[in-house]
């Protein structure tokens, strides 16, 4: 009892009365869809394809909602950059527990640097104490936006977070690294990117789906936020990965080594 009230007052003292969390949400082709390359090789087919929230962003939203349930966070803003239809993914975030949303409406192809700059512009309007993003989106697998946003804001970052806790007015972020687990302490405001094992996202319940309909979504254009979407990359061609060819059986270890050396040429 004593420890709980002590912890409680510490949270209040440190964050005053308000801790705002912003979460990034991206509309991507659903993870279960079999991706098809367009016949003209300009990209992948997205017409009449099921779209969903990037799974790592669901984990980010879930973490924010848990912080709010623990009475650490007081407000959650979901943000997306994308076409009008990306509103569906914002509604999903609102149904999971975000309080309101910001939609930067654009039909343009966006690179991580564009999204990071647009998020920076929204951070300057909203002044969140914490930004949580998925570690990467499953469409382009860039894994850059969170890091770029932290650099642009000059905020500390905890990428690939597998555990997050509030400690001494700042964050303790556990990261999965090659050698094991690394724990970082950082001050707020900060940027976190969510790894797969951070949590298991909930389903939006039906009453919350209905409530989400009434929550507010503010819309901006990229011009209104003063960000120019300068294209730094040009896609020349998108192609299917080469078909996997069937293997061959070898009789002995010697033959295997010989094939690896002289046919596959993977050893000297």
């Amino acid at each position: 009892m004593i420890t709980r009230s002590a912890a409680h007052s510490r949270v209040h003292r440190t964050f005053s009365r308000h801790l705002k969390v912003m979460v990034g949400v991206k509309r991507v082709i659903d993870y279960a869809v079999k991706i098809r390359v367009k016949p003209d090789k300009s990209g992948v087919e997205t017409a009449n394809v099921k779209m969903s929230m990037n799974p790592f962003d669901e984990i980010a939203v879930e973490e924010a909602v848990r912080l709010k349930e623990k009475k650490v966070a007081t407000e959650i803003i979901a943000m997306t950059v994308g076409p009008t239809a990306a509103q569906e993914q914002l509604r999903t975030a609102l149904a999971m527990g975000a309080d309101r949303a910001v939609h930067v409406v654009t039909d343009a192809e966006t690179l991580p640097i564009h999204v990071a700059k647009l998020m920076k512009a929204v951070c300057e309007k909203e002044s969140p104490d914490l930004v949580i993003l998925g570690k990467q989106a499953i469409d382009d697998d860039s894994n850059q936006t969170g890091q770029m946003l932290a650099a642009l804001m000059d905020w500390p970052q905890g990428a690939f977070a597998s555990a997050v806790s509030i400690k001494d007015g700042g964050l303790e972020v556990t990261r999965e690294v090659d050698g094991g687990l690394e724990t970082l302490a950082m001050k707020l405001p900060a940027v976190i990117t969510a790894d797969l094992r951070l949590n298991e996202p909930r389903y939006a319940t039906l009453p919350n789906i209905m409530k989400a309909k009434k929550k507010k979504i503010d819309k901006f254009t990229t011009d209104e936020l003063g960000v120019e979407l300068k294209q730094h990359l040009k896609v020349l061609s998108v192609e299917d990965p080469p078909k996997r060819e069937g293997g061959a059986k070898v009789e002995s270890v010697d033959e295997l080594i010989d094939k690896l050396r002289n046919v596959a040429k993977v050893i000297d």
Binding site: E88, R91, T92, A95, Y203, A204, T205, L206, I209, M210, A212, K213
Partner: peptide, 13 residues
């Protein structure tokens, strides 16, 4: 959109 979200939620469940 609420019908679509409902279907989506039930399908995941």
């Amino acid at each position: 959109p609420e019908h679509a979200a409902l279907r989506e939620m039930v399908r995941s469940f």
